[in-house]
Design a binder for these strands. Structure first.
Length: 294
DNA sequence: GCGACAG
DNA sequence: ATCTTGTCGC
């Protein structure tokens, strides 16, 4: 039984993949009722001003006296080349979830916290549009651990390696994590998930058109008329965009502002660090050592 | 039927 | 996501 009170197909022989997906869909629909797509946070957003001073932008939530946004988390999961569901005989880790926290008030975006969790005997497959059921449990565990111990670096906002609203049913991994952890979240995709008529060529054309207007991002509107997210060139040199979408409790325009201020390279730094460090940690522990003393 | 399909 | 060498460029 997992975090959703859901038993997925491994016990009782085989529940058909179709049946599993139906149950996953139901969970997504249920959690979606708790989704908040507007600014809803106590902190304030720093705005770099041309005069050199740091102005402060009013955040959502209305409550006065909020602190500045300082701690931004990034999460990712890396996998080893070995097959999923590593042989029972092998104690080798087959995946590694990571949670890092960056202090975004420092010019270098210093990493102030990192934690990892290794996966063993992992058998949840990757199925497009159901990424959350593969990656959310281990990431939630890392967040929960921080919260339970009252860690002072607990993130005020989470950047997720995966989409939010930019999803076939409007509820990607970033929404899933945001809702279950009840934390403001932003989804970041490195590739376009073809949804509601969106295509790379279409995105390219719109970006080039906007190119002259000085803007470095375009809003993505599906054929149905819904705003699903934005495509942006996070670095001057990169023509390949990243895809930003609402995860939870952060409006799209706010998400874009935030992402812009934490990109040293194409991939926003919190996610980039989570990615690099999880892969590194997995390699250094892919010999059967899960960190637990026996 | 065929292609597409976040990580 | 992972496999995988060199290579072109700032």
């Amino acid at each position: 039984m997992d975090d959703y009170g859901f038993r997925h197909g491994r016990d009782r022989g085989e529940s058909s993949s179709i049946e599993t997906q139906n149950q996953w869909r139901e969970i997504q629909d249920l959690l979606k009722e708790r989704l908040i797509t507007q600014d809803d946070f106590p902190w304030k957003l720093p705005i770099p001003s041309s005069s050199g001073n740091v102005a402060v932008e009013e955040g959502g939530g209305g409550g006065g006296g909020g602190a500045l946004l300082k701690y931004v988390g990034g999460v990712d999961v890396s996998y080893s080349k070995e097959l999923d569901s590593a042989e029972a005989a092998s104690m080798a880790a087959c995946g590694c979830g990571s949670l890092v926290v960056l202090d975004v008030t420092t010019p270098t975006l210093q990493v102030v916290y990192q934690d990892f969790s290794l996966l063993t005997n992992f058998d949840v497959p990757y199925i497009p549009s159901f990424l959350a059921f593969r990656e959310a449990p281990i990431l939630l565990q890392l967040l929960q651990k921080m919260k339970n111990t009252g860690n002072p670096f607990y993130p005020q906002l989470l950047l997720v390696d995966g989409n939010g609203l930019l999803h076939p049913r409007g509820f990607g991994l970033a929404c899933h994590l945001g809702v279950l952890a009840n934390i403001p979240a932003i989804g970041i995709g490195k590739n376009l998930h073809h949804v509601d008529g969106l295509t790379e060529s279409g995105v390219r054309q719109l970006l080039q058109a906007k190119d002259n207007s000085g803007e470095d991002f375009i809003t993505l509107t599906g054929s149905s008329g819904c705003v699903l997210g934005a495509a942006m060139r996070s670095t001057k040199g990169s023509c390949k965009p990243i895809y930003v979408s609402v995860g939870h409790r952060v409006a799209l325009n706010t998400a874009i502002k935030i992402v812009k201020m934490i990109c040293k390279y194409r991939v926003p730094e919190p996610i980039r660090q989570a990615d690099i460090r999880s892969r590194d940690h997995l390699q250094k522990n892919s010999d059967g050592n899960d960190g637990t003393l026996q």
